[in-house]
Nucleic acid binder design. Sequence first.
RNA 1: GAACUUGUAGCUCAGUUGGUUAGAGCGCUUCGUUGACAUCGAAGAGGUCAGAGGUUCGAGUCCUCUCAAGUUCACCA
Length: 797
Amino acid sequence: MDSRYDFKLSEEKIYKLWEEADAFNPDSVLKLRQNDADNPDSVLKLRQADAFNPDSKIELQKDKNNQPNKGTAVATGNKFSIVLPPPNANDPLHVGHAMYVVEDVMIRYHRMLGDDTLWIPGTDHAGIETQFVFEKKLKKEGKSRFNFDRKSLYQMIWQYVQENSEVAVDQLKKLGFSLDWSRFKFTLDEDIVAEVLETFQSLYRDGLIYRDFKLVNYCTKCGTSYSELEVDHVERIDPLYTIQYGPLQVSTVRPETIFGDVAIAVNPNDPRYKEYVGKHLEVEFPWGKKTMIVIADEYVDPKFGTGAVKVTPYHDANDFQMWETHKNEIIEQPIPVIDTSGKIINSPDKYNNLGVVNAREAVLKDYKSYKTAEGKSLLISVNEKYTHSVGTCYRCGRLIEPLPLPQFFIKVADDKINLVQNALNALDTNETKIFGAGREKILRHWLNNLKDWNISRQITWGISIPVWYKTDGNEENIIVNFLDKENQYQTGLLSDWLKTYSLEEIKQNIQSISANISVPYSVSVNEPTDGNYIQESDTFDTWFSSSQWPIVTLKTNNKSDFERFYPLSVMETGYDILPFWVMRMMMLGIYMTNKSPFENVYLHGLIRDEKGKKMSKSKGNVINPIEVKSEFGADALRMALIIRSTPGQDKSVGKPDFKAMRNLTNKTWNAARFIIMMTEEPHDKTVTENSPLDQEFDQKLNDIIVEVTQHFSNLKVGLAAEVVYNEFWHWFCDICIEKSKDGDVSLKKLSYGLITFLKLLHPFMPFVTETIWQELLEKKVVKNKLLIVSDWPTPVS
RNA sequence: GAACUUGUAGCUCAGUUGGUUAGAGCGCUUCGUUGACAUCGAAGAGGUCAGAGGUUCGAGUCCUCUCAAGUUCACCA
């Protein structure tokens, strides 16, 4: 053995060794162990050194007690299952993904324990993210999504993702993850999609799906709507304009929405405005006059501004709410005055087609120059330093535009089937336990305040919603966007285009459609045959399919997998996607199976740099796990991430940590090297057995095994790592090996200790420990062919 | 406005159901090492565990309050 451990020589080789043995597949593991026991080379043909092997010791004891020798494999009869949170198929891994090492550590421990252990890999199509990246690529080529019909665009993105999908998988392997690759799934695999569509239909049958014309959060840059959770609220300073509004005055930061106003609202108890309530007032604008009713609503705060609010139902969520409440009083019908591209519509000609920012300036300019017949200005005052918070797109950072669109929603708290309540119950009964500093309370808070979930996304890369609109008789209520015979983008009413194109031609080249809320639809995977239909062009929110991941991955693999491994033992992920993913997995999981999809949720913290600062590209402190791996080895990276980590708490790591753990791999290597050397050529003072401190040694080692095992079973992997590290280095190496040089600890105990520590260290540092194991195997010090499937140490009396 | 988390050595963090002299890595001081490892070893300095009060035989750990930092949510005409 070399005096230094060179991870570059072994990592790839060792991973291959495991893969070729099929050691990650629960269907093979038991066989592997049993086969090994049947191997004549490994049964009781012991050299002297083999007596040091705890495996053979147990066996010898068993033989003594006249028990049948079944080999070393101990099946506990328990199962242990995890599904990897699927990384984006076309993105390289970042440190967050490297934190999945927590899962590998748990998986390796349980596999060695003898549990029926499964870890399923997969990748996510990441609808919006991926389409966005792809569109950027198109832009570089001078094209956009409007140059392609739906089908072609989908095919192109599929191709693009395929080309890149090896990257993530390859990197997961580089980190040593013992995922069962034979069960790999992609969120757009046919069988997965079929399951997801079935869930949607089932939800629809149960009355939990509805289509509604509501204000949704729309990003005009990304061209799609979002759910409430995907909106980031940020503080901004904007001017607040107070304008004359008939006899009253109102304030607004968005004068460009004024064209969509339908009423004025005041607080019912405000003495200043009591006389106006219910009255129709004439309001003068620079572009004309309009009559509007005054309504009374508790929502209006009399202390804010003038205490009177203009009501713009289609471009403000609160106004929409007030309009719904007072629908019957308000005569004026609301109309959208901003479209999905962020341009003004349905307004005086001079403003139409302006973007919202330009429109605002234009409106203000006209207000400033306009004088009433009495010579007064309509612009009363401007507060330049008004602080408020606005919704922005979590991805591109642009302002979110509340727009009225017909979308599909999931009822989260239906009277009959209450998804939220079911999830809360699972928490109450401890069916699912949350590990992560106070995150359970946060999860409950989310659940208690959850709104219905908008699952429609106006993008192509995803699973199409299985909804068909009847075109017969509804041609005037459906807008189609498609490519004409010259491959030019066209938009307009279906009724108009049917004059020059057949419905089939339009459907073939469709980009998107927009059906009025009144158009009847049917829910089915295939096109209905009782007339002419056109399919909804929206796709599901990616989280809708991700939320079914634990179930659909198990159901689409081996038939028995679902029975065998559901619910998952652990769901491990970052706390940042608790509401997006974990919460929804619980809601849909319980809906689909009547069981919470996982017993434990382990939430790892964010990885920060060595100074505790958040990583960001602009700061240049981003750690690339693959770079760290090539410099220090996968084992060092893994150990550095896991040691002393606590669920729910952020973790700082940096070069000093990687270096320290790289040293640990080397220390392990050298401890093994020393013991092998001593076994082969003992020194003068070396004692092979019965040294004065041997009994003490056994006691201490037993204590360590018990302590580490306890930490594992309590999901305290960070602590387990710390204990193993300290005891291995500062007790086993610094004390025991040193004392053995004076004959105070016997070689027999050292060998036993080494093998035990290799096992205890293996979940954290699989490569170096397996590499050493292979050396020991060659020298017949150990018997099991692979450390990865050898038995977890038990205290020996 | 509210909730949650955090405050332990110079820095980054552990501390398992409350139990002797509070731990690790990095950094620092002194010394050692010609046969496991300088990617090493030994010895050491450095902490009234944010502050105050309480429960207890006993509190870093449980409770209350105060201060500070961070995260998130809600409102915002």
